[in-house]
């Protein structure tokens, strides 16, 4: 197997004063060189926690890896110590965060913030790092890069800052880029530009990307594979064509229906999934989507479904695809 990253049975919990929050309850996926994988789901479904746990960025004081493994190029991340992680972070895996307004150090010039990683991982001199930084800024489409590099973050607009963030993340040419909702905080037109930039970088540098988002439009634009998460679990995976053409899990179906379409009637309401996701302090023992599911069956309440292969690469965790379900539907 030539998987760049392999996440197996990952379980992550947070400890709050109210108790243990099981934010991630068993996540499996793999990503190959140069592939773009989207992790999709509502806020609080564990997608961001999954992304951060790949880089071991979760606060060690109140979170822990309960189970599973994260293999990056064959190396077990969960067992890696801080020294090993420092070699991976920024160097082999880069990360882009959601809010470019707060992700840059406000009291440090852009030049320093780009150069830091280069000097550490590439042993560049101050001058080399500066020149390379200018090249990077040009690459992500910042005009007058040679001048702008000496500015502070607050002198850039939101979209420009996200470009700077991307420049910082790709500075050391990482093999994997994790983008945690990179466009959520931006205006729609800027979103499109940033997506175009990511696409171009992927083609130019052959970087694998894990894209965390709740926006299916973003997914369609950029990704090869989709992972749908709900309440800390993966409920459906597949390649982009499969998922968009034929979503199988009721939650994915709901997500697809809630995308606004051009052919919608003027008076047609945008579809939304009723209810709220379950409390992960006491996750339900059956299917987590049970209380919001139109197709719920008696079994769903007490037994959690496993992932089953459905098409070539499509898998879903839903009792509807159990052989007994088909016969039950037929007979009832």
């Amino acid at each position: 197997m030539d998987n760049l990253l392999e996440v197996k049975d990952l379980e992550v919990s947070f400890y709050t004063h109210a108790g243990e929050v099981q934010a991630v309850r068993g996540v499996n996926f793999a990503i190959k060189q140069g592939e773009v994988v989207a992790i999709v789901g509502e806020s609080g479904c564990g997608k961001s926690v999954t992304a951060k746990s790949i880089m071991k960025l979760l606060p060690s004081s109140n979170s822990s890896y309960k189970k599973g493994s994260i293999l990056f190029k064959g190396q077990e991340i969960i067992q890696a110590n801080e020294r090993e992680m420092k070699k991976i972070r920024g160097n082999e895996i880069g990360m882009i965060f959601q809010d470019p307004m707060t992700s840059l150090n406000p009291t440090s010039k852009i030049s320093d913030q780009i150069a830091e990683g280069l000097r550490k991982h590439r042993n560049m001199s101050r001058k080399e790092a500066l020149n390379y930084g200018i090249k990077l800024l040009e690459m992500v489409g910042i005009p007058h890069a040679a001048e702008r590099i000496h500015h502070y973050p607050h002198e850039f607009s939101g979209g420009m800052r996200q470009r700077v963030m991307i420049a910082i993340a790709i500075a050391c040419e990482p093999e994997l880029l994790i983008a945690d909702e990179p466009t959520t905080a931006l205006d729609v037109t800027i979103q499109a530009q940033i997506l175009k930039l990511l696409k171009q970088l992927k083609d130019d540098l052959n970087t694998a990307i894990v894209l965390i988002t709740h926006d299916l439009g973003v997914v369609a634009e950029l990704c090869d594979k989709v992972i749908v998460m709900y309440a800390g679990k993966v409920v459906e995976t597949g390649n982009i064509a499969e998922i968009f053409r034929n979503p199988r899990h009721p939650y994915t179906m709901g997500l697809m229906r809630s995308i606004p379409r051009l052919d919608m009637q003027r008076d047609e309401n945008l579809y939304s999934i009723v209810g709220t996701p379950p409390d992960l302090l006491n996750p339900p023992k059956g299917c987590a989507f049970y209380s919001r599911c139109k197709y719920a069956m008696k079994i769903c309440k007490d037994f959690s479904p496993e992932m089953e292969s459905l098409e070539q690469s499509q898998k879903a965790a839903c009792w509807l695809y159990h052989p007994l379900a088909k016969s039950a539907v037929k007979t009832s």
Partner: peptide, 17 residues
């Protein structure tokens, strides 16, 4: 608690720095 602390960590910089 600020986001940029996470950015710094994701760059693989030294803790003291």
């Amino acid at each position: 608690n600020q986001d940029f602390m996470l950015t710094a960590k994701s760059k693989g910089l030294n803790k003291g720095f």
